[in-house]
């Protein structure tokens, strides 16, 4: 991006983007740790994830304030305005991603008898795919790379396919092992949360594409 004649504006935008990146870094770590806690049954790790969400929320409101301030004081135009609007929306979505991680972490203690509960092992690969999407979309945001953003959108299919197969697996597992139904139901919610994380990463990717090029990606299905 070209430098602005008003240096203060440049500084504001840089700070705004830095805040988003910081939020993203926290959300990324939260996803990974929430899943690790879920799979290993680590309550302390889960508590850490839940606590981290407060920080993410605080950062979101900081982004909100700064974005509104920029719009009010500097009246940005064209790509600058796109940048600020996108940052505003992305912050909201990243905050949602953090919420889903928190939600997963909260369910850690609801799974009983982890060692015998086989479907748990299915989550690892799905979680990895989703957290990779989040990682890539944040990298795309940092480099304003519309190509990488489109790749992230394409990879959402993989997470959806994981979700469907886990759903089928868990349902048939419930039929065979009625004693574990409550744990299995929790697991379905967790899978659902991961699937939503993937969807939200797609949303961010669309906004990254928008901020970089001014149009939404062509194959968007609204």
């Amino acid at each position: 991006m070209n430098e602005h004649t008003v240096k203060a504006f440049d500084e504001d935008i840089t700070r705004l983007r830095g805040l988003i990146a910081e939020m993203g870094g926290l959300a990324e770590l939260s996803i990974q740790e929430a899943l690790e806690a879920m799979i290993r049954g680590d309550d302390d790790l889960a508590a850490g994830v839940i606590k981290r969400d407060i920080k993410i929320d605080a950062l979101e409101s900081e982004v909100d304030k700064l974005a509104v301030r920029i719009i009010a004081l500097r009246a940005p135009m064209a790509d600058d305005l796109r940048e600020v609007i996108a940052a505003l929306k992305i912050a909201g979505v990243v905050e949602r991603i953090g919420d889903y991680s928190k939600n997963i972490a909260k369910r850690v203690s609801d799974i009983e008898d982890r060692k015998k509960f086989e479907p748990l092992t299915l989550l690892g690969a799905m979680g990895e795919a989703a957290s990779e999407m989040v990682h890539d979309v944040l990298t795309a945001y940092a480099s304003r790379d519309p190509v990488l953003a489109r790749e992230v959108i394409a990879s959402d299919e993989k997470v959806d396919a994981f979700y469907n197969s886990i759903f089928r697996n868990v349902v048939s597992y419930m039929v065979e092992n009625p004693a574990t139904i409550s744990s299995a139901a929790q697991l379905l919610f967790v899978a659902r949360n991961i699937e939503r994380i993937g969807d939200h990463a797609t949303n961010v990717a669309e906004m990254v594409h928008f901020a970089a090029t001014g149009v939404y990606p062509p194959d968007e299905d609204v």
Partner: peptide, 20 residues
């Protein structure tokens, strides 16, 4: 980390909470 990081906020490049 990519050429784009010059002039950006450091957090864009190293966004891991421990780094921040």
């Amino acid at each position: 980390l990519g050429k784009h990081l010059i002039g950006q906020d450091l957090r864009m490049a190293l966004r891991h909470p421990a780094a921040i």
